[in-house]
Simulated assay, not measured.
Amino acid sequence: MKANTSAPAPLAVGLLLSFAAVAQDHRHVHAGHPQTRQERPASAASPHPQHHHRHEHAGSPPGDEPTQPPAEPGRSGPSAHGDHRGHGGAVPHAGHAATGDAPAAALPRTPIPPPTDADRAAAAKPASRHAAHDGAIHSLVLLDRLERFGGDDADGLSWEAQAWIGGDLNKLWLRGEGERVGGHTESADVELLYGRAIAPWWDAVVGLRHDFEPGGPQDYAAFGVTGLAPYKFEVAATAYLGESGRTAARIEVEYETLLTNRLILQPRLELEFNGRDDPGRGIGSGLGMAEAGLRLRYEFSRRFAPYVGVVREHAFGRTADFREAAGEGADGTRWVAGVRAWF
């Protein structure tokens, strides 16, 4: 009989606990969570873990969860739409769940086949179509100066020309210049040179020079460089070794300034040096002559351009003495007019 009096107590406690659990699950369903804690999949991780903490309260008994605040006017209740809003109040997209699988649209619909030997052969051009540019032969004839001049001493005619033929690496050069005064040739020379490219814009030249005047014919061995210096200065520097140990050198520097697309101003400087005196030719040792000119040309076409200018020349040292002894001035200024052409 003692057992019959104590049986209702455990039964009453079990009924009370079951009633409390049902009431708690009913509260979660009413708050907008149709899934209970037992029905929530373990792999569906929310993008905002702090919201799970708000509902589950790890470490607290199930019956100690805080109650939800009352719903605001115009809202259906304090559902997960208020708790699960991300930044800016937007509801997280269902695709935020970390599934680890790429979207089906990102996969190629048709696999790209690997290239075959026939594909590679069709894409590549035959090697015979790529001709080397340095194998082509080019040529140029330039009449740099053909001009009449008049000045302190007399009127006359002067010229300077050059021509070359060859490729990018090897060229054959022909250069010459001279001057006539009063129907008499004062000076004239011609050079035959082989040129080899030694650097971008620079050629080394070696060959022969033949002087017709002054003082009769004379031959020299010639070697030097020609090319384009920094800042676009055209430079030609040549040394000469002649008969009986005679030596000489000539340096020419030109620069072209484009005033307009067709109007061009060209300063020019020429220096001549000699190794020893040569009274028969009126040449002294050291720096013999310096000539500075300024020419303004107009290019009707790139191949033809008339010009006008002024030239100043000066003799130095023993060369000046020889000129004064011959009744000539050591220096002088002259006006020039001529044409420049190339083809």
Rank of each mutant, 00 (worst) to 15 (best):
A31G: 09
R40P: 00
Q24T: 06
A7H: 11
A3S: 07
Q38G: 08
H28K: 06
L15R: 10
F19E: 07
A12G: 08
A42D: 09
H28C: 12
R40V: 10
N4L: 13
P41E: 04
P34Y: 03
V13G: 02
H33G: 10
P10D: 04
H30K: 12
L17F: 15
H26V: 00
Q38Y: 15
P41R: 05
Q38M: 14
L16N: 02
P41T: 04
F19H: 13
Q35H: 09
N4Y: 09
H28F: 13
N4F: 13
A3V: 12
R40M: 08
E39Y: 04
L11I: 12
R27Y: 08
G14Y: 11
S6L: 11
R27K: 11
T36K: 01
D25W: 02
A12N: 07
R27H: 06
A45G: 14
P34M: 04
A21E: 14
T5D: 07
A3K: 09
Q24E: 10
A45P: 01
S46H: 14
L15F: 08
Q35P: 00
H30G: 04
L15P: 03
L11R: 08
A45I: 14
H33P: 00
D25R: 03
P34V: 08
L15H: 06
A21G: 10
H26F: 00
A20Y: 05
R37I: 10
L11P: 02
P47C: 01
T5I: 14
H30Q: 03
V22H: 04
P34W: 04
A42Q: 07
Q38A: 15
H33K: 03
N4S: 14
S6F: 11
T5Q: 14
Q35V: 07
L11Y: 00
H26K: 00
V22R: 08
A20R: 05
D25N: 05
R37S: 13
Q24V: 04
L16S: 06
S6D: 06
A20S: 06
H26C: 00
A23H: 03
S6A: 12
A23V: 05
E39S: 12
A3F: 12
N4C: 09
A44Y: 12
A44W: 15
V29Q: 13
S18M: 14
F19I: 04
L15C: 08
Q38H: 11
V22M: 07
E39T: 12
R40K: 04
A45T: 12
Q35R: 09
F19P: 01
V29C: 05
P41F: 03
P47E: 03
Q24R: 13
L11N: 09
A9K: 09
P41A: 08
Q38P: 00
A42S: 10
L11K: 04
H28P: 00
L16E: 02
G14D: 09
T36S: 10
H26D: 00
P10M: 06
P34T: 03
G14M: 07
Q35M: 15
A44F: 15
L11H: 07
A45Y: 08
S18W: 11
R27E: 08
A23I: 01
G14F: 14
